[in-house]
Write a protein that binds this DNA or RNA. Structure first.
Lengths: 338, 338
DNA sequence: GTTGGCACTCGCGTGCGCTGAGTGCCAGGC
DNA sequence: GCCTGGCACTCAGCGCACGCGAGTGCCAAC
């Protein structure tokens, strides 16, 4: 176990490095922090920290920088979550309050988060399977053509075009619509498959094909991977990554474009509590030099989706975590109101 | 007017520079192209081209690179549009055919375009105002709460939540829905404002407030700036921009995040024909070292929106234009089918 | 108008030495 | 046993000089 002072040294190194982006040496440390000991002592401590793998030297004659393991310790033990100031909270609320629909909420959230953290923001749309059905609408666009519109309590609207195997009368459609809604409205989406299972049986033989088609389309929208959507923003902040960054930025941009990768990333994180994944803790190779801070959000106690930011491992963890948490909280409120 | 051969020299310079990314000298030119003249002659021609402002020297002792003006001449007079090969056309069609809804079409288009051109792709959603109304749906979610759903012939679905000034009965709602649709269904969105103008008059006094609210919400969705949506992709291709790119890439990423800027950019381009804006021809400063190739697309003859790519001025114009044109054509087909 | 020749320019890569921040180690002190 | 000042050592980065070579402009000859 590391002594109190050595932890203090590690904290100082992390803070300085995050601030200056430059390896920090023993002398600079004693000058900028009141450690109460001499540089020589700090050097000894640093040697120990390096042995333990918390810090490393980029070059023999340079200062130290934290390793992923060092950041991990910092986040777990040495740093708290820096709460937002009152004006910041107000600004967040004002900015989000103006949204007119879910796309707008998500869009504003992404921009807000990117701006607050000066990093890349990722916001997942509320998951269908974790939401509640508000309404299912069926519209007849042509004799054998139906549009299915799903509406959730979180404001998400999903639509699908359906080509029916046989013409489907307006009365049958109204019938199906009514039956569908009476069964699923107000129920969790996750229960929908069971709730509609035996629905075709209630219809005349000639309509059963169409009813089945509609139902299977409805169920398809719930398939994971398809139902998950997300929005990203603030990619311009990647340019602040570092000096060497053509090599660094490339894989990150590629990862961000691969929604699958991002969804997996968010999916792996803890369910609703705040999660920080540092450097190599991220399974995806392209993100090995980044950290991902994410948290679930939702209208009630339940998380319906996640949001977070992607930034360099050298980031201001307390501040970032504070911003992410605050934004998630307000987004949850907004969703609850709508 | 430049002689035939000088134009040929310019073409050769553009082609070589696009290929190698390095300033091209007189000797290299004569070796790689059958100009039938000696390097000395080419040098004379280059001097003239430089005087006229078509090419420039980055350093005194370096080869020449095309200027924006040079690229402009190249695009206008010297290069055609390189058609896609048959396998490419087939690949495009196959890839786009799998789409299930408009979001999917747009998403696939963006990815396809980015991959084909290896540049940043931008695809605008079909404009509401240039589309035709397929259906307007009103859903009662709560006594004084209505959801408005707009559906266009291009598959676009827009929704808005409406808080009614007074409770609105189910029969009134059905009435409004029917009247609305009988007036606007099948008509261009642009005509909607006129078509619904006197609608409140047909209702009882107690419902007029709500009807007006619904109508004004409907009209709001048509306001330019709000109704325009777009999707971008392939930002990872920015990393292939050049060597000096921290400085170049930053403003480009920023511009791409500002949807307003992009929409303006596309808006300024010619209506449906292919437009190429080179370097400083782009009004937005951050895009001064990029070229934008865009074209309108639509289900019929009319363009309902635009798509295009953003890349370095040093791009393969014929190939890019060919890809953009081909993709636009197929997207138009897909939209017409749906 | 074209061409070969020639002197000139200058960006770029290479090698070298210096500087200074930072280190590890050690002997002495609390 | 831990802390501290001193000291020799390392090495990345910087500035500088140098030479190479691609590329140019000009000119005289064809």
């Amino acid at each position: 176990m590391l002594s109190e002072r050595r932890l203090e040294v590690l904290r100082a190194i992390v803070q300085d490095y995050v601030g200056t982006e430059e390896p920090v040496g023993s002398k600079a440390l004693t000058e900028r922090h009141r450690l109460g000991v001499s540089p020589a002592t700090v050097r000894n401590d640093m040697a120990v920290l390096e042995d333990e793998g918390y810090i490393a030297q980029p070059h023999t004659s340079a200062g130290r920088i934290p390793t992923d393991k060092g950041y991990r310790l910092f986040v777990d033990k040495l740093a708290g979550v820096k709460p937002m100031t009152a004006p910041e909270r107000r600004a967040i609320q004002n900015f989000l309050d103006g949204a007119v629909d879910l796309d707008d909420v998500v869009g504003r959230t992404v921009r807000l988060l990117a701006q607050l953290t000066r990093q890349v923001a990722v916001v997942q749309y509320p998951s269908l399977t974790r939401s509640t059905v508000r309404h299912v609408e069926l519209l007849s666009l042509a004799p054998a053509r139906v549009m299915l519109v799903l509406i959730t309590d979180t404001g998400r609207v999903e639509q699908r075009m359906i080509n029916c195997p046989a013409p489907f009368g307006e009365t049958s459609l109204a019938d199906l619509r009514a039956r569908l809604n009476s069964r699923v409205a107000g129920r969790p989406f996750a229960d929908v498959p069971q709730l509609v299972q035996d629905l075709p049986e209630a219809f005349e033989a000639e309509d059963r094909g169409t009813v089945s088609t509609v139902l299977s389309t409805l169920l398809e929208t719930l398939v994971e991977e398809t139902e998950e959507r997300l929005m990203i923003g603030g990619t311009a902040n990647l340019t602040r990554f570092g000096h060497d960054f053509p090599l660094t930025i490339r894989p990150v941009l590629e990862a961000l474009e691969e929604q699958v990768v991002l969804l997996k990333l968010l999916g792996e994180a803890g369910d609703s509590s705040m999660t920080v994944r540092i450097g190599h803790e991220n399974a995806y190779e392209g993100l090995n030099s980044t950290s991902v801070v994410s948290v679930g959000y939702g209208s009630g106690g339940e998380a319906v989706a996640k949001l977070g930011v992607v930034g360099p491992t050298r980031m201001d963890y307390p501040g970032t975590m504070g911003a992410v948490r605050a934004v998630a909280r307000y987004v949850g409120q907004i969703l609850a109101e709508s």
